[in-house]
Simulated assay, not measured.
Amino acid sequence: MNNKVVIVDEKFCFPEETHLTVHKTSVFFPGDGFIVYDLHGEVLYRFDSYGPESTPKDELVLMDSSGKCLLTLLRKKPSLHQRWEGHIGEKAEHQEPIFSLCRSSIIRRSGLVVEVHGDPEEEYHIEGSFTHRCCKMMDNSCRDPVVEIKRKVDPSTNVMLGKDVLLLCLKPGFDSAFAMGLVLILDQMHGDDADDVAQEVDPTVEDTIPPS
């Protein structure tokens, strides 16, 4: 991908292919939020939750490391296709969304569709299983994925870590804040429910990776 995909801010687009570590945790309730680290171990993004009683959530806020709101994500109700909408920063009254995500309405096509508002040609398809931490986001060309979500492997032991630690793999120039906003939505739609994969590809997931 030669051109930048800027949805939130150009500063979140890395010039080279980047793997971010996403840890499902929280300073309030372990396992109920997210912290995202860059390649140097610095906190890049975070999402804090304030307890199980707040679930299911209809509004999510992606913040940077200082707590500044980058994206507000809203679940639309009622919605046949589980539609979510993303807004830049803190949503203001009458503010239009910059993107939406919903289940595909195309017969015989599983997965999710992400539409970037204002550009009818900018559309992405998410396929695979977020529940198993194995999914990809493709652009309209449907060639190479622009975003991949994988389980992380401990390089010292070659053992796959638990599902609370994942890799967010980004092609050069792709907006990482936008990608992380989609991860928050996917977690709300599928979470850790192993039964919620009716419309997802059910991959074979091994606990270890054979040495190369």
Score class of each variant (00 low, 15 high):
Met1Lys: 08
Asn2Phe: 07
Lys4Arg: 11
Lys4Leu: 13
Val5Thr: 12
Val5Asp: 01
Val5Leu: 15
Val6Pro: 00
Val8Glu: 06
Asp9Trp: 11
Asp9Ala: 12
Phe14Tyr: 15
Pro15Phe: 13
His23Met: 10
Lys24Leu: 10
Phe28Pro: 00
Phe29Val: 15
Gly31Pro: 00
Tyr37Cys: 07
Tyr37Met: 12
Tyr37Gln: 07
Tyr37Trp: 08
Asp38Cys: 02
Asp38Val: 15
His40Ala: 15
Arg46His: 13
Arg46Ser: 03
Asp48Asn: 14
Tyr50Lys: 09
Glu53Lys: 10
Ser54Asp: 11
Thr55Trp: 15
Pro56Leu: 05
Asp58Leu: 02
Glu59Met: 09
Leu60Thr: 04
Met63Arg: 10
Ser65Gln: 09
Cys69Thr: 15
Cys69Pro: 07
Leu70Glu: 03
Leu73Asn: 09
Lys76Phe: 03
Lys76Pro: 04
Lys76Thr: 10
Lys77Cys: 01
Ser79Arg: 03
Leu80Glu: 08
Gln82Leu: 00
Gln82Tyr: 01
Trp84Met: 03
Trp84Leu: 01
Gly86Lys: 05
Gly89Trp: 12
Glu90Asp: 08
Glu90Trp: 03
Glu90Pro: 01
Glu93Gln: 13
His94Gly: 13
Glu96His: 12
Ile98Val: 15
Leu101Tyr: 12
Leu101Trp: 06
Cys102Met: 07
Arg103Phe: 11
Ser104Val: 10
Arg108Tyr: 14
Ser110Ala: 14
Ser110Glu: 08
Gly111Arg: 09
Glu115Pro: 01
Glu115His: 14
Glu115Tyr: 14
Glu115Met: 10
His117Phe: 13
Gly118Glu: 12
Glu121Ser: 07
Glu122Ala: 11
Glu123Asp: 04
Glu123Lys: 14
Tyr124Glu: 00
Tyr124Gly: 01
His125Tyr: 11
Glu127Ser: 09
Ser129Ile: 01
Phe130Trp: 08
His132Phe: 07
Cys134Tyr: 09
Cys135Ser: 06
Met138Trp: 05
Met138Leu: 15
Ser141Leu: 04
Ser141His: 13
Cys142Met: 12
Val147Phe: 05
Ile149Gln: 00
Lys150Ser: 13
Asp154Cys: 13
Asn158Ala: 12
Met160Ile: 10
Gly162Met: 11
Lys163Asp: 14
Val165Cys: 06
Leu166Asp: 05
Leu167Val: 10
Leu167Ala: 10
Leu167Thr: 09
Leu168Asp: 00
Lys171Arg: 13
Asp175Pro: 05
Asp175Ile: 06
Phe178Gly: 04
Met180Ser: 03
Gly181Ile: 12
Gly181Tyr: 06
Gly181Lys: 08
Ile185Ser: 03
Leu186Phe: 10
Asp187Phe: 06
Gln188Cys: 12
Gln188Gly: 02
Ala194Gly: 00
Asp195Cys: 04
Asp195Glu: 14
Ala198Val: 07
Ala198Glu: 14
Glu200Cys: 15
Val201Pro: 03
Val201Met: 02
Pro203Cys: 08
Thr204Val: 13
Thr204Trp: 08
Glu206Thr: 07
Asp207Tyr: 00
Thr208Gln: 02
Thr208His: 05
Pro211Ala: 02
Pro211Cys: 01
Pro211Thr: 05
